[in-house]
Design a protein around this nucleic acid. Structure first.
Lengths: 212, 212
DNA sequence: GTCTATAGACTGATAGAC
DNA sequence: GTCTATCAGTCTATAGAC
């Protein structure tokens, strides 16, 4: 097995296992068994378990952010520099939701890994997460451009809640399915995105109306 | 130290540490050090680490559910058997939000422990969590009674999203504070409850209007 | 680069004196 | 009930042969 294959095999096996079972429950022995490589290979290629997790997180974090910003840029170009609020919010929650709930299995591991990483605060990730704040500020800024008459506070809360709805749906969709006796359909990702975006937009416009 | 004091000291130390650092990072040695009791005391009083966690979770779970149902009952009595949708949603998210973000520190540990327990799926907790679904169904039923003309699916999604907003605010309020440069005030708990309830109600009534 | 073997440091749990 | 001492198991990380 070539060097690059070993590295890649470790990365994808680790991501799959971490996504499914969390960081605490997955040992390096589990990873090397799943990747069919030697135990020492992890430390050779990554230095330590934490550095392996950090590499996964950085890679995926950059990829997700890039995808979001691409959608945001497309929305702003289409709208002549100022995009509709719907398109901005869809660019924010769409990539992650499609990755986790959609049919693509490999992406699903990636997205579920990121959700887990954002929950189980492991030391190497905590540092990187601070950059996420800057990324979200770009979306908040775009939202302010789209709705110049709205309070910045309301926009921040709305952005926060939109992410909350998306993440909880990914993390605990099973509970929703049980509670609704299967009425709520988690397979129709676009409908979920529309629902979250709709509620968020309504929260902003409704609040503005209430003040007028 | 009397037997009951030791038991209680272990419980409260464990809850505090788990709330702050998660299950994986807190060892039994950490707990007994914080509680100032002997290492063997945990196994003597609880049998195992998992049973200690389970006891904490069951106790708090029952307490939170009781508090929610009390508020729900009060709302239904006040409304003459059919409570306003606002009051039902406030009964759902209020107890947890007040516990976590309010000034009361002991309650804060309890609520943050529950949030963590609902995230980091440890074996003994997973079984108990299924009962939570039945608990939520009672709120969904109350919401259907309050809004008999609404789709059950929309009500289920709204309940799911209301919990999502509350949990994310508790779990990652720090990010919101950073992102908004301190504009979003996490200390005014009632305002947060009102905001979440307001958005949820609007999501339901707005959707009904859109269909009409 | 890949492997075996093992070091060194934890963990949860328990036996037995008091 | 409380304690000390310790077990057996697990983990990550590494040294050194190939």
């Amino acid at each position: 097995m070539a060097a690059d294959d070993t590295r890649t095999a470790i990365l994808s096996a680790a991501e799959r296992l971490y996504a499914a079972r969390g960081f605490a429950d997955v040992t390096m022995r589990d990873i090397v068994a799943a990747a069919d490589v030697n135990l020492a290979a992890v430390n050779y290629h990554f230095g330590s378990k934490d550095e392996l997790i950090a590499e996964l997180f950085v890679t995926r974090s950059l990829a997700t952010n890039r995808e979001r910003l691409n959608e945001l840029k497309a929305a702003e170009e289409h709208g002549g520099g100022r995009s509709h609020i719907d398109a901005i919010l869809a660019a924010l929650v769409g990539p992650t939701l499609r990755g986790c709930l959609g049919p693509d299995k490999q992406r699903s591991d990636a997205a579920r890994f990121m959700i887990r990483a954002s929950i189980e605060s492991i030391p190497p990730i905590r540092k990187i997460k601070n950059r996420e704040v800057d990324h979200l500020k770009r979306f908040a800024a775009a939202m302010r451009r789209a709705l110049p008459d709205h309070d910045a506070v309301d926009i921040d809360w709305t952005l926060h809640f939109a992410l909350a709805m998306a993440h909880q749906t990914i993390r605990d969709g099973e509970r929703l399915t049980k509670m609704s006796d299967g009425r709520c359909d988690l397979n129709d990702v676009q409908a979920i995105i529309d629902r979250i975006v709709g509620i968020s937009v309504q929260a902003l416009t409704g609040r503005a109306k209430a003040r007028a």
